[in-house]
């Protein structure tokens, strides 16, 4: 209703360029809340980890410390961006953008409910996989352009980790799109809204997480590794090892940080959409809606923080072993199992 009225008003003002303005407006409507969420995710993380470690967390700036992320951002903005001598200046400044831009571009095809999506394309899952695979350039280029052996080795380490877990993640997604018979994220969610349990008012048992439980675990672990979060955070490893962004400072460093948190929100949204039924309501007597999607995203994000506060860091060879020798064979086996399941009379995804 309100949206229609606004659409009519804008159409009157802008005339023939209206569709362009409308798309731009939608992009802003996605990006601006996203950046705000990124800022407050950092705050939430510090609070949650604080509570888990019986501390209070940030509490000085503003009421309950609520202005802390703004203060942090301002501090980083005002700091000098030091560019090391002998570094490749253009690539050095390009690298943070390579890290951050894919995390934003992927939102173009993310559906928020049945109709609320910027671009409803058929191959949206494929698009997201290809766009997010570009993020690794930020890491590898920043490591190289810094003209420092530490940054370079750190970049190589993180890039190898990200490529390895991308394989496991991709294979887990193959299983998901096999059962939903579509590459469209909206169709994948709608596919989870059918089945035995939905008819009995227990929709959450029909979502992909239960029939594809091993893939859900693989995917969730892989995205933690993909976003370079603890316990796979060898990219940073603040106190023991140095990572690809040792030479970065000020806003250039902050962009890497923003990219990490924006990626966290993105993969949480994808987990909610692919495995947790997106905007579908978990029980029959409550209506579906965008609120459920936000609730599920928050829950997955909380798991990210919880994991960080709980587990010690993995050793590098253990990370690689987990990715290549455990997850990939598991995915391949489960691919065959689900394929057989779908061809048998017990198929539940018709």
């Amino acid at each position: 209703m309100m949206i229609d009225a606004l659409q009519g008003l804008l159409q009157g003002i802008f005339g023939s360029v209206f569709p362009l303005i409308w798309v731009l407006l939608k992009i802003v409507l996605i990006i601006a809340p996203l950046l705000l969420c990124v800022a407050y995710l950092t705050f939430w993380e510090r609070k949650v980890i604080g509570w888990m470690q019986v501390r209070i967390g940030p509490n000085r700036v503003g009421p309950w410390g609520l202005i802390q992320p703004i203060a942090d951002g301002l501090k980083l903005l005002l700091k000098e961006v030091v560019i090391p001598t002998g570094s490749d200046k253009s690539v050095f400044l390009l690298a943070p953008m390579f890290a951050f831009a894919p995390a934003l571009a992927a939102w173009a095809v993310v559906p928020f409910n049945d109709t609320l999506v910027l671009a409803n394309v058929n191959a949206s899952l494929l698009y997201i996989m290809s766009i997010t695979s570009i993020g690794v350039y930020g890491i590898i280029l920043s490591g190289w352009a810094s003209n420092s052996k530490y940054a370079f080795l750190g970049g190589m380490r993180s890039a190898a980790q990200m490529i390895s877990y991308e394989v496991a993640m991709g294979l887990a997604l193959v299983v998901v799109l096999m059962v939903s018979n579509s590459l469209n994220l909206g169709d994948i969610v709608n596919g989870q809204g059918r089945g035995y349990f939905v008819d009995r008012g227990l929709g959450f048992l029909s979502w992909n997480w239960l029939p594809l439980l091993p893939m859900f675990v693989v995917y969730l672990t892989s995205v933690v590794a993909e976003t370079n979060r603890a316990p796979f955070d060898l990219a940073e490893g603040e106190s023991e090892i140095v990572g690809f962004h040792v030479e970065y400072s000020g806003m250039a460093f902050a962009v890497f940080f923003l990219a990490e948190y924006a990626n966290m929100i993105l993969v949480s949204t994808l987990t909610a959409i692919l495995f947790l039924g997106g905007w579908l309501s978990p029980v029959g007597f409550l209506p579906d809606g965008i609120l459920w999607l936000f609730l599920k995203i928050s829950a997955v994000l909380f798991v990210f923080l919880w994991v960080r506060a709980t587990f010690p860091r993995y050793r590098y060879d253990q990370i690689m072993r987990l990715g290549w020798k455990v997850f990939i064979p598991l995915c391949l086996i489960w691919l065959v199992v689900v394929g057989t399941w779908m061809m048998s009379p017990l198929n539940i995804w018709k």
Binding site: A123, L126, Y127, M129, S130, I131, S133, I134, V136, Y137, I140, L141, W144, F152, M156, A159, I163, E166
Partner: peptide, 20 residues
């Protein structure tokens, strides 16, 4: 999309690895 996924996302990263 496959061009970006395969060549940009995987092949060129390994290329860069080797070149660097």
């Amino acid at each position: 999309i496959a061009l970006v996924l395969v060549y940009v996302g995987a092949v060129m990263v390994l290329f860069l690895f080797v070149v660097m």
